[in-house]
């Protein structure tokens, strides 16, 4: 049971929250301008690090607000939570854009 510090309500048990996967993955500005590969990147590809991960949570059984947390996926320790709307704290690990998601060949 994680204890998650909702930026609006304070620390609450995990059972009050819903998980939203990686944070800071914006819905594409103009989806129609994307190639199928790029669109697949948005739909299906998220970082999956062993270590610090900026991720989204929603306080479903509380204020219903979405917010972001930085959590270590090895230790589960949450080092920061911050609102979706506010500034992004320094040092937050942003989604990888330098590593491509591929189409396998020969399939």
């Amino acid at each position: 049971m994680l204890t998650i510090d909702c930026p609006h309500c304070g620390p609450r048990p995990e059972t009050e929250f819903g998980y939203g996967g990686q944070a800071h993955v914006a819905y594409p500005e103009d989806p129609s301008a994307l190639t199928d590969e790029e669109w697949a990147g948005y739909l299906f590809y998220r970082d999956n690090p062993r270590g610090e991960f900026a991720e989204r949570w929603v306080h479903s059984a509380g204020c219903r607000k979405w917010f972001n947390a930085v959590r270590d996926t090895r230790t589960y320790r949450i080092s920061a939570t911050y609102t979706s709307a506010g500034p992004v704290p320094a040092g937050i690990v942003r989604p990888r854009t330098d590593v491509p998601h591929p189409v396998s060949k020969g399939a």
Partner: peptide, 16 residues
């Protein structure tokens, strides 16, 4: 797998 494929230079659509 994700950790490994990043080392190989590509991503896979999985979450652990």
């Amino acid at each position: 797998t994700s950790v490994l494929t990043e080392l190989a230079g590509f991503r896979v659509p999985i979450q652990s």
